[in-house]
Design a protein around this nucleic acid. Structure first.
Lengths: 144, 144
DNA sequence: TATGCTGTTATTATTAAAATTACAATAGGA
DNA sequence: TCCTATTGTAATTTTAATAATAACAGCATA
């Protein structure tokens, strides 16, 4: 596979919705900004809707954030998009005849969980508003 | 792609070397435990050697840890294997005509860096010895 | 010297991600 | 009501990173 940019694309979509509250926001229009196709955008939006981060209705090109930007954390988005998929993956395909391999992987799980928790804790400290603030700072700098 | 299990396999190799200090440890033998092929094992070992986590010599099937197990952290292994590859990836392929996309991704970078630092900080707290301890605990439990 | 192994590179296969396609169903306007 | 634009969803295809495989020069040891 190629490495996933789904979280990045989902954040992009959320920001784009926030930044364009009035305009006609079709998946086609969003897809142009992300430079992808409308189907992919709708798939991500479907996940975001199920996680109640946005609301949208069939046939109506007016998606909206379902919460304030301060209330949406990167962890919310990560979970919405990736579900339980972790950042690091065990090799669960080691030789079962060799107890060493299996037990090392099982031992590793415990530590991977810690790393996941640390990463998600940091994600939880970052809100969509933070990303938007960073975005606005950049826009300002660009103009100078 | 499939998702990477390289870090897990590298830890497996390190533990396997630690646990079998006397035996003839060919890449073939290690590969059997990981249930993979010797070439892949040698590639990972090549990265570990370059990072000075193990020592090994051409033609001689006696790889050794180059440091104490307490001195090798998960972060060391991660860096040895993955280099600068981060856990989360920006979408660097957004529409350049749309400043929104580009700037959102650039803003995200700053926050992804934070998450990476948090994850690596936790990795740094975990040593090969910790994993080995977890492994030994499991072995004990299995026997009961 | 002969054998077995390493270190390295090149090539192929596998598979998750992303792209693409298709279509029933809904919203809103003419 | 009919028409157009769009959504929501699923199915299929393409792309590309990972892992598997193959090949071989060069070193270690018997």
């Amino acid at each position: 596979m190629r490495f996933s940019t789904r979280l990045s694309d989902a954040v992009h979509i959320l920001c784009f919705i926030y930044l364009n509250p009035d305009e006609n926001l079709s998946s086609e229009r969003i897809a142009e900004s992300v430079r992808t196709n409308p189907g992919y955008v709708r798939q991500l939006m479907s996940s975001l809707r199920k996680a109640e981060l946005i609301s949208s209705t069939k046939g109506h090109a007016k998606p909206m954030l379902a919460k304030d930007a301060e209330e949406i954390t990167l962890r919310d988005v990560y979970r919405a998009i990736e579900g339980d998929k972790p950042l690091l993956h065990l090799d669960t395909h080691t030789n079962p005849e060799c107890g060493v391999g299996v037990n090392i992987q099982l031992a590793l799980q415990e530590y991977y969980d810690r790393i996941q928790i640390a990463a998600e804790a940091e994600m939880e400290r970052i809100t969509l508003q933070d990303v938007l603030d960073g975005y606005h700072e950049r826009i300002k700098k660009d103009k100078r």
